[in-house]
């Protein structure tokens, strides 16, 4: 019989961690289902753009995606915006307690009411702040035009720092930084480096203030109608490619940060403990400000899982 074709569309280049993980998933899935499925990976928004892929998935026009977690707020599952909260996760261990534990699974279930089947969380990494001046204390952000992706949480985060958030598509960011339309931005190091943004930013600070991650999702009806054995094969492939994705994401981000330092084009600053404390303090109000939106219970369950104490 002809293999079942799964179109897997994403919006980044094939050589990024997510792009590589998608290719890895393709290989593993085709292998584990013994050719019962054929995965067609469409990178770089060749099939659907950032703004339309979710609707396309809901309609069944594409079967699998790996959008950034920030995309689920507009879908109506605002609980996912918890991942954008500044300084909620201290490190990958904290994070994986959530994404690979019950909370993560619970959030994925919420997607089902939207016709979406959540399958796995893939890391990108923790973000650094960059601009054309040193960013040490919250005061340094005052009045800066900071590029963010569309997100109410990130907007609140930048406002809490006194910056002027500018929502701008990722594709326009390099040019905007280069010409000075915006002063700075926040990115995991791998994005900063692969987009060459470090060439047009003088300073970067390893604040690790926020997390950027993706969820692998499928059209729910499509997924549930797959033969049992095929789904088992795909689940295995997902599990292995998730480990792969998270591992290379970490590697690539570490490598990228070293490469940025080595380039000499951006001065990379690692803040002291006190400076981090000051940032945490400035950004703490964002948690309360966003509690109504995201859901107090979700935020608190994350606090509990990671042992985070908001009063500190």
């Amino acid at each position: 019989a002809d293999p079942i074709v799964i179109k897997f569309s994403h919006v980044v280049a094939p050589d990024t961690p997510k792009g590589k993980a998608a290719e890895k998933f393709k290989t593993l899935a085709e292998e584990k289902t013994k050719g019962a499925v054929k995965i067609e990976v469409y990178p770089n928004s060749t099939l659907y753009k950032d703004k339309e892929e979710m609707e396309a998935l809901q309609m069944g026009a594409v079967q699998m995606l790996a959008p950034s977690l920030a995309k689920f707020g507009p879908l109506g599952v605002k609980e996912f915006e918890v991942f954008d909260l500044p300084y909620l996760f201290r490190n990958y261990d904290d994070l994986h307690k959530v994404t690979q534990g019950d909370i993560g699974a619970g959030l994925m279930t919420k997607l089902e009411t939207k016709g979406v089947k959540g399958l796995a969380y893939w890391d990108n990494g923790f973000k650094v702040m960059s601009a054309n001046k040193p960013l040490k204390t919250p005061d340094d952000y005052k009045g800066l035009k900071m590029r963010i992706q569309s997100s109410k949480v990130l907007e609140a985060e930048m406002r809490a720092l006194g910056a002027n958030p500018q929502v701008m598509p990722f594709s326009e960011t390099y040019q905007a930084l280069q010409t000075g339309v915006v002063d700075g931005t926040e990115n995991p190091p791998s994005n900063l480096f692969t987009q060459k943004m470090h060439e047009v930013q003088k300073n970067a600070t390893v604040t690790n203030h926020g997390y950027l991650g993706y969820a692998v999702i499928a059209n729910k009806d499509f997924w549930e109608k797959l033969p049992e054995d095929v789904r088992t094969g795909l689940d295995e492939a997902l599990k292995e490619s998730t480990d792969f994705a998270n591992q290379i994401a970490k590697e690539e981000n570490d490598k990228a940060l070293e490469a940025v330092k080595a380039s000499g084009k951006t001065e990379v600053y690692t803040p002291t403990e006190d400076e981090i404390k000051a940032m945490q303090k400035a950004l703490a109000p964002v948690h309360t400000e966003m509690a109504d939106r995201i859901g107090k219970d979700v935020i608190e369950s994350v606090y509990k899982a990671t042992g985070f104490d908001p009063s500190k």
Binding site: Q58, G76, D221
Partner: peptide, 28 residues
């Protein structure tokens, strides 16, 4: 209709929304 009108309309009429889900919103 599929993108959210069905959900809103059926809800307003007090009918079962079935496989129609609440549609997305614009991000900003």
């Amino acid at each position: 209709w599929e993108n959210g009108l069905a959900y809103v309309a059926l809800n307003a009429l007090g009918m079962d929304t079935g496989s129609h889900y609440e549609g997305p919103t614009t991000p900003d």
